[in-house]
């Protein structure tokens, strides 16, 4: 059955995930009520089977509870420049404390994200308000790790949701 095993992340997708993408995480609770949170610093593991990202604790408590409860996760990566979007789904997401490498990836990602939005006419200060608000009550980040089992082309239009 499709999606039973982790997929290997190819070069093109790996490059895309490393770019200045907007990252949103979808989870659900035991009543199947969804919860969205914003993540930073996506990183593809050496074996290309796992993706990690960091979410602010202050904004993601319910999402983290959901992951602890059932591990089901969907993450979209979207390029602000042209709406190119991929969705990765996994079933056994776990959490951990980010190390200094993870935090450096987060910093790089935020910087690239601000730069690409700057080119689209948003001031850097305006975009930075995004993550400032997220961490205003607590600066703690939590790392989420999951093995994608399905990859979808989620670019808007009639073909959105095509499995890759």
């Amino acid at each position: 059955m499709a999606g039973a095993y982790p997929v290997l992340i190819g070069d093109e997708l790996k490059t895309f995930l490393k770019g200045p993408v907007s990252v949103l995480v979808g989870t659900r609770d035991s009543r199947l009520v969804p919860e969205i949170t914003r993540a930073w610093g996506p990183y593809v593991s050496e074996d290309r089977q796992r993706v990690s990202l960091c979410v602010p604790l202050a904004t993601s408590r319910k999402a983290l509870d959901n992951l602890e409860g059932n591990g089901e996760i969907a993450v979209t990566f979207s390029l602000p420049r042209n709406y190119r979007t991929f969705q990765l789904k996994g079933r056994h997401a776990t959490t951990a404390e980010p190390d200094s490498t993870d935090l450096a990836v987060v910093e790089r990602h935020r910087d690239a994200f601000a730069t690409v939005n700057e080119a689209l006419g948003q001031s850097r200060q305006h975009v930075e308000a995004f993550w400032r608000a997220e961490i205003e009550t607590s600066a703690v980040l939590v790392k989420i790790i999951f093995a994608p089992e399905q990859v979808f082309d989620q670019t808007p239009g009639p073909g959105a949701g095509r499995i890759l």
Partner: peptide, 18 residues
């Protein structure tokens, strides 16, 4: 905006909305 739904078998799905 973005929208998250969940299938009957518990898989979240996340996508963008204009």
């Amino acid at each position: 905006a973005s929208i998250c739904t969940c299938s009957a078998d518990g898989k979240p799905n996340l996508t963008y909305l204009s």
